[in-house]
Design a protein around this nucleic acid. Structure first.
Length: 273
DNA sequence: AGACAGGGGAGTG
DNA sequence: CACTCCCCTGTC
């Protein structure tokens, strides 16, 4: 690719893109073709260098949160042997700052689905309701903007199942600006606002807050993280939220990213007493 | 064949 | 609150 490059350390493009926080990418022989915010670009990491094409460095800095001091944050969340091991193993994995609209609808598609299935649903959603984009000699589809989904019939080929009515309803009752307004609120209020949307509970609300609205204290608890918190940290359901907030602090969201990635690859074992 | 999945919601006790 | 069942689809 015709390339620019930046030096990043530590950085792991693979873990960052493939850890389950983001869905619109495709890997072709070591190069990632990524779509976000109406952009299509390519990324490839060689050693400490990130090669990029189709996007400028300012966008990448925003997207990969390069304004944040990752090493410092990792120091702050490094509170126990479990998270310590995850940090050692995946050091360089970063949170991605996604577009809030895409993020909300993407995670609406995510319930009770595995990552590859979520990616397929989103791809079909773009093909059904998104704008056609010419990119070189290829045709791509943008992510459907608010109000672009008109009715349920339009989503038939998406095969989103019980998620389809949620997508339709949410696409009609909120837009990107209203989501961005949430950044001004305290975490709990923003979370409550999101949870008023159909199909959005605690988990999806926290994903949107963490991955797109800069609430780094948000700690989405899905079944993998739940199992881990139960088995490794010996927590009961109702104790989880308070624990992660006290234990990991203001950057709990980064801790979730590392624990989730680690537990998903190596399912948490029950610790002997 | 039948259970189950990276979640949410409605209904019940 | 805590618990159960169902939601659609795909996969093991």
């Amino acid at each position: 690719m015709t390339c620019l490059r930046i030096k990043l350390s530590p950085f792991s493009l693979r873990d960052t893109l493939e850890c389950g926080q983001f869905f619109r990418y495709r890997r072709v022989s070591g190069t990632y073709r990524v779509q976000s915010s109406n952009r299509i670009f390519s990324l490839c990491q060689k050693g400490d260098f990130l090669y990029y094409d189709g996007v400028d460095q300012d966008f990448l800095a925003h997207f990969f949160r390069l304004d944040e001091d990752l090493e410092l944050i990792l120091t702050k969340i490094d509170q126990d042997p479990t998270i310590h091991q995850a940090i050692q193993r995946y050091r360089g994995m970063r949170l991605i700052r996604q577009d809030p609209w895409e993020c909300l609808l993407s995670f609406l598609c995510s319930s009770a689905k595995r990552i590859d299935q979520i990616r397929s649903i989103i791809e079909r959603l773009c093909r059904c309701s998104g704008e056609k984009i010419a990119s070189g000699n290829m045709i791509s589809y943008g992510f459907p903007e608010p109000l672009r989904i008109r009715n349920l019939a339009e989503l038939e080929e998406v095969r989103a199942g019980f998620r389809a009515p949620y997508l339709l309803a949410v696409n009609k009752c909120i837009d990107r600006d209203e989501l961005l307004q949430l950044k001004r609120m305290p975490y709990d209020r923003a979370r409550q606002s999101l949870m008023r949307l159909p199909g959005v509970g605690k988990k999806i609300a926290d994903c949107v807050l963490l991955y797109s609205l800069d609430f780094l204290q948000a700690f989405p608890i899905d079944t993998w993280v739940r199992k881990g918190l139960q088995r490794v940290y010996r927590l009961r359901e109702k104790a989880m939220e308070e624990f992660v907030s006290d234990h990991f602090g203001a950057y709990a969201g980064y801790a979730q990213l590392y624990l989730f990635h680690s537990w998903r690859q190596n399912p948490p074992l029950i610790q002997s007493p």
